[in-house]
Design a protein around this nucleic acid. Structure first.
Length: 515
RNA sequence: GGCGCCGUAGCCAAGCGGCUAAGGCAGUGGAUUGCAAAUCCACCAUCCCCGGUUCGAAUCCGGGCGGCGCCUCCA
């Protein structure tokens, strides 16, 4: 049984899809006006993992992420840069997609764009006006929050508590919390014809329209960053449920945001906001202005991070908690992952099989096995059980990743105890146990979307000539060691260490790796 | 001011009333090694403070202190 925390009820609920066996997920995507930074990857990685887990549990999952390609920020950026909005949106969408691919997010089934759904947005808006939930005012159309029952139910706030807020066009609104469904075009802005004159969609409406078009008027999971609970999602529910007369989403899931930890104290977001409230301080304490704010691809390049390390970093804590960004932390996660990569090489040395080629079970039931009296396999089965229990509990990837480390340590111990690095100590039964253990590791890692393919070799240079030269050095060193000439042997190894190459002596010979 | 989240070892982090408080990074000792590297083993926390509930609390309740988020078209 999978339990999921629902923002709506503020409790963990047993997950039950609307339609048996099928799950629809809608996650609010980016406004494509600038290159993606690491913070944009948080939600996608989490929901990609959630989708994998649901598929693993036998559900047929459809996942939708919208692309907002018409918006104030896009207009501003376009005016600044001189790049037409459509072109800006296209290149930034490409950048976003490239980043998703890097971190292994490949489960998104639909990427609807706001500009492809203008007609439906207009219809939706008309419908709300017809039903009395919205009103037109001088070319704008506003949603009338006072007419929506339960307005505030998602973010758990009341209209009374929101008095005094509101934007610059408040005079056109009946209530300061009313929000635009349709915005009248200003000169030079992109616009579409509508019954209220030329204009463009408001911020929230595209999600209501596109989710209904693809997933239906009621679907299973609506997700996004915690920052979207209010006003974005609150307004989505209000307009969708007013329009359709039925619940929009069964479960609302919100992930914690990435923060720039080291900068927070110094820049002090809180006091400055309360006292000053100026633009600059609003940026303080947030990811903007820190290393994490730079383009994700640039970050990977400059810090030489494996994208998989970033994915693992994001999954190493529970999704609802905020994550502090720090280069050091990601680096230490990478150090931890090296244990796995070394094990995979070891596995190949011992069994002759490539870890990444193991065909692991894709669904839960298929991964179960009877360990019999095998001590190793009993523990493997136990680890698998604990991994799945963590995932069942509101997708606790933090707990699950811990189990993965325990599992690889157990497998390494088995290789040590049975001395399997020595070919003479190998036998079919032991190798079979090891293989089943590795297969389970691969099965569980697959759920998290990691270890699906080998990490890219570090910084080129592993060409044929390098290989030959390394073999020569290793051979020379082996001869020196045989002759007990350790001075020469150590000189070779130490010099290589300085070049960033590590030698590892093993029963079967010497391996080398680049740092 | 309103609503909400969080405070577990040097750092990160799981844990949601009851076995010895997961796991990672860093560190220390040991096995292994010619010496290393890697691997394995061991060690490394009475869970911010004060009360309360309970046979029993890191886990529940109240109060402090500290950090953070949203309320302002950031994922």
């Amino acid at each position: 049984m999978i339990r999921v925390y629902n923002t709506l009820s503020k409790t963990k609920e047993e997950f039950q899809p609307v339609r048996k066996g099928k799950v629809g997920i809608y996650v609010c995507g980016p406004t494509v006006y600038k290159p993606s930074h690491i913070g944009h990857m948080v939600g996608p990685v989490i929901f990609d993992t959630i989708k994998r887990y649901l598929v693993y549990n036998g559900y047929d999952v459809t996942w939708v992420v919208n692309i907002t390609d018409v918006d104030d920020k896009l207009i501003v950026r376009s005016n600044e840069s001189g790049v037409p909005i459509a072109e800006l949106a296209r290149t930034m969408t490409d950048d976003y997609m490239a980043c998703l691919e890097l971190v292994g997010v490949d489960g998104i089934d639909h990427f609807p764009k706001a500009t492809d759904h203008i007609e439906a947005i207009i219809k939706f808006t008309e419908s709300l006006i017809d039903k009395g939930f919205a009103y037109a005012a001088e070319g704008d159309v506003y949603f009338d929050v006072a007419k929506a029952k339960d307005y505030g139910k998602l973010s758990h706030r009341t209209l009374e508590a929101m008095q005094g807020d509101g934007g610059g066009t408040a005079e056109l609104k009946r209530h300061s919390a009313d929000f635009a469904l349709w915005k009248k075009a200003k000169p030079g802005e992109p616009s579409w014809k509508s019954p209220w004159g030329p204009g463009r969609p408001g911020w929230h409406i595209e999600c209501s329209v596109m989710s209904a078009a693809i997933l239906g008027e009621t679907f299973d999971i609506h997700g996004g960053g915690l920052d979207l609970v209010f006003p974005h999602h609150e307004n989505e529910v209000a307009q969708s449920e007013s329009c359709h007369g039925k619940p929009m989403a069964k479960v609302w899931m919100h992930n914690g945001l990435m923060q720039a930890s080291s900068e927070v104290g110094k820049l002090g977001g809180r006091q400055t906001r309360a006292v000053e409230g100026d633009q600059a301080s609003q940026e303080a304490g947030k990811i903007a202005g820190s290393a994490g704010a730079k383009s994700f691809r640039l970050l990977l390049e400059e810090e030489k991070f494996q994208p998989e390390t970033v994915r693992f970093f994001l999954l190493s804590t529970h999704y609802r908690r905020p994550i502090d960004f720090s280069v050091e932390r990601i680096r230490s996660v990478g150090t931890g992952l090296d244990t796995f990569y070394r094990f995979f090489k070891r596995y190949e040395r011992v069994t002759g099989e490539n870890f990444y080629a193991i065909e692991a079970p894709q669904v839960r039931a298929a991964g179960e096995f009877d360990p019999g009296a095998d001590a190793l396999l009993k523990e493997v089965a136990d680890h698998r059980q604990r991994f799945l229990e963590s995932m069942d509990d509101d997708f606790n990837t933090g707990g699950a990743t811990g189990v993965l480390f325990e599992l690889v340590r157990r497998l390494n111990k088995f290789v040590e105890d049975e001395k399997l690095e020595d070919p003479k100590k190998r036998d079919a039964a032991k190798l079979a146990s090891l293989k089943l253990g590795a297969k389970t590791l691969r099965e569980l890692a697959g759920i998290l979307g990691i270890f699906r393919k080998p990490p890219e070799e570090k910084a080129g240079g592993d060409d044929q000539l390098t290989g030959q030269l390394m073999q020569l050095l290793i051979d020379l060193r082996a001869e020196a060691r045989k002759a007990k000439d350790f001075a020469t042997a150590d000189r070779i190894r130490n010099s290589l260490t300085e070049m960033g190459i590590t030698l590892e002596d093993r029963p079967g010979g010497t391996d080398w790796t680049r740092a």
